[in-house]
Simulated scan of single mutants.
Amino acid sequence: MSETTARVLQLLGLLQSRRVWTSEELAERLGVTTRSVRRDVERLRDLGYPVHASTGHGGGYQLGAGAALPPLLLDPEEAVAMAVCLRLAAGGSVAGVGESALRALSKLDQVMPARLRSQVAAVHETTVTLTPTNTDVPVDPEVLMTLARACRDHEHVNAGYTDIRGNVTARRLEPYQLVTTGRRWYLLTFDRDKQDWRSLRLDRMADVRALGSIFTPRQAPDAAQYVQRAITSSPYRYVARVRYHAPRDVVAQTFSAASVQIEADGPDTCILTTGADDPAIMALYLAMPGCEFEVLEPVEVADAVRTAAERLRRAGAR
Results as ranks from 00 to 15, higher is better:
Lys194Asp: 10
Leu188Tyr: 13
Ala122Ser: 15
Pro175Asp: 13
Arg117Glu: 07
Pro175His: 09
Thr126Tyr: 01
Gln195His: 09
Thr169Gly: 05
Glu155Arg: 11
Val94Thr: 14
Leu116Tyr: 01
Leu187Thr: 10
Thr162Asp: 01
Gly98Cys: 07
Ile164Leu: 08
Pro113Glu: 13
Thr127His: 09
Ala170Tyr: 04
Pro141Ala: 01
Ala121Trp: 05
Pro175Met: 12
Leu130Tyr: 06
Ser93Arg: 15
Ala159Ser: 12
Val128Trp: 07
Ala122Glu: 15
Arg149Gly: 08
Gln195Pro: 00
Ile164Phe: 10
Asp196Val: 01
Leu105Ser: 04
Ser100Asp: 14
Leu147Asp: 06
Ser199Arg: 02
Glu99Leu: 11
Arg183Lys: 09
Arg152Leu: 13
Val120Glu: 00
His156Tyr: 15
Leu108Phe: 11
Leu187Asp: 09
Arg198His: 08
Leu187Ser: 08
Gly160Pro: 00
Pro175Ile: 07
Pro138Tyr: 09
Thr146Cys: 07
Glu99Asp: 08
Ala122Pro: 05
Pro138Cys: 12
Gly96Pro: 06
Ser100Ile: 14
Arg183Pro: 00
Leu144Lys: 03
Ala170Ser: 15
His124Asp: 15
Leu144Asn: 01
Trp185Thr: 10
Gly98Ile: 11
Gly160Asn: 10
Met145Lys: 06
Gln177Thr: 09
Val97Trp: 07
Thr169Tyr: 03
Arg184Met: 03
Glu155His: 00
Gly166Met: 13
Leu108Met: 07
Ala121Thr: 14
Ala104Leu: 14
Pro132Gln: 13
Leu188Thr: 13
Gln119Thr: 00
Arg103Thr: 08
Gly96Ile: 09
Ala121His: 05
Arg171Gln: 09
Asn158Ala: 07
Thr131Ile: 03
Ser199Asp: 12
Trp197Cys: 03
His154Leu: 02
Leu102Trp: 08
Leu178Phe: 08
Ala150Leu: 04
Phe190His: 14
Thr133Leu: 12
Tyr186Ile: 06
Ser100Val: 15
Asp191Met: 01
Val139Pro: 03
Ala148Thr: 07
Leu116Glu: 15
Leu173His: 08
Arg149Phe: 01
Val123Gln: 05
Arg192Thr: 12
Thr146His: 01
Thr146Leu: 01
Met112Val: 04
Lys107Met: 13
Ile164Gly: 02
Pro113Val: 03
Ser106Asp: 15
Trp185His: 09
Leu144Ser: 01
Asp153Met: 00
Tyr161Gln: 12
Tyr176Glu: 11
Leu130His: 12
Val139Asp: 06
Ser106Ala: 15
Cys151Val: 06
Tyr186Pro: 10
Ser100Cys: 06
Leu102Thr: 10
Pro175Trp: 14
Val157Cys: 06
Leu178Ser: 08
Pro113Asp: 09
Trp197Pro: 04
